[in-house]
């Protein structure tokens, strides 16, 4: 090692002109104090700057892999309920499963009312004008989607690439209590699921508009709090549903149509989302288990032996995960967590 490298304190005032401070040689301890003041997107930019900074970011457990993120805006919604309508900058917590640590992400003013989901590194946000925008929380790039305000009551829409036009695919009459809870693009088709369990597949390339195929008809009533669908990298489409049960709640995960297997998980306060590419199908199903309990609140989640990995939301409650059933908030505000995967 050269003498220069061994000196802890280079003396810049005596340096020859033209040579500035060597920020890339800062001690890891110092870099860590800088990192403490950075939110997630900046922390990741920090990690890209150079080798030394990246190693500091690794020590600080700034996640640098493609493992999905869980983004929670439960705290934000809670704050909004307390303070009334707020149009300040929104800050969400974001959890990375590799490091099991929360980071803050701030959104530009007015662009975040709710998050509808995430895909290919983009979050789908609902802004204050009720329009949809794609937002990359790391680069802060934003792409507005065509406005949907033309529709009186939009229940499900689709648009194909390049077309600047959206088309209503299906609506529920207002008097029916059923409503769409989630929509997923999987294996070339769109799938939708309703609160009563109606599972539909949409064929978009047909002449004369989208064709609907009913895979599972509506059955369950009353005690389903929410349903979500996940298209997995290994080619499955999974459906997760949260059931209201006394004394707690439980979450089911299944392969639609008619569930070939169902995993159950009781109690706890964990939300589990993990998609390691090498896992077997069965293990993957288990690892996608989601469970929540309004009663246990911040109690430490118990680890299910069948679950490969888990991450907990310290503040998550049943209401955080899916919205209280009696809530009159718009649907868009009901989902509070999204699985986010960098592109």
């Amino acid at each position: 090692m050269s003498l220069q490298r061994l000196r802890l304190f280079p003396d810049f005032h005596n340096k020859e002109p033209g040579t500035g401070p060597s920020w890339s040689d800062l001690l890891v301890d110092i870099l860590l104090t800088i990192l403490q003041h950075l939110e997630l997107p900046q922390a990741i930019a920090f990690a890209s700057v150079c080798k030394t900074w990246r190693s500091a970011a690794t020590v600080a457990r700034v996640p640098c892999s493609c493992t999905p993120w869980i983004i929670s805006w439960a705290n934000h919604l809670e704050k909004r309920r307390v303070q009334g309508k707020c149009s300040t900058f929104v800050t969400c917590s974001s959890y990375h499963l590799d490091v099991e640590k929360a980071y803050d992400i701030s959104f530009p003013q007015g662009c975040f009312v709710a998050c509808c989901g995430a895909s290919h590194g983009w979050l789908v946000l609902v802004n204050e004008l009720s329009n949809l925008v794609l937002y990359n929380p790391f680069t802060t790039a934003m792409i507005p989607l065509p406005p949907i305000t033309d529709f009186e009551c939009v229940e499900a829409v689709y648009g194909s690439g390049g077309q600047d036009k959206w088309q209503v695919a299906s609506t529920f009459p207002g008097r029916l209590a059923d409503r769409y809870l989630d929509c997923a693009y999987h294996d070339g088709s769109f799938y939708t699921v309703t609160s009563y369990g109606l599972l539909e597949k949409w064929h978009l390339d047909e002449l004369g508009g989208p064709r609907r195929e009913e895979l599972v008809s509506a059955t369950a009533r009353g005690f389903i709090l929410t349903r979500h669908m996940v298209s997995t990298p290994w080619g499955d489409l999974l459906q997760g549903a949260t059931l209201l049960r006394t004394p707690g709640s439980r979450c089911l995960l299944s392969h639609p149509p008619p569930p070939p297997r169902t995993e159950e998980h009781h109690g706890g306060a964990a939300l589990l989302l993990h998609t390691p590419p090498r896992m077997t199908k069965r293990a993957s199903v288990r690892s996608l288990l989601a469970a929540s309990s309004g009663r246990l609140g911040g109690a430490p989640p118990t680890r299910d032996p069948g679950v490969d990995r888990w991450s907990s939301f310290p503040s998550a409650s049943l209401a955080d995960l899916c919205g209280a059933p009696s809530s009159r908030r718009p649907d868009a505000a009901r989902r509070r967590h999204a699985l986010y995967r960098p592109a």
Binding site: G20, P21, W23, S24, I30, T33, I34, L35, Q36, H37, L38, Q42, A45, F46, S48, V49, C50, T139, T140
Partner: peptide, 22 residues
């Protein structure tokens, strides 16, 4: 550290390098 963090905020990795004279 907070001052340096403020200088970094909102910048891409290349912009950070330029800002700090890497």
């Amino acid at each position: 550290a907070k001052k340096v963090a403020d200088m970094i905020k909102g910048k891409s990795p290349m912009e950070i390098r330029r800002t700090l004279g890497f």
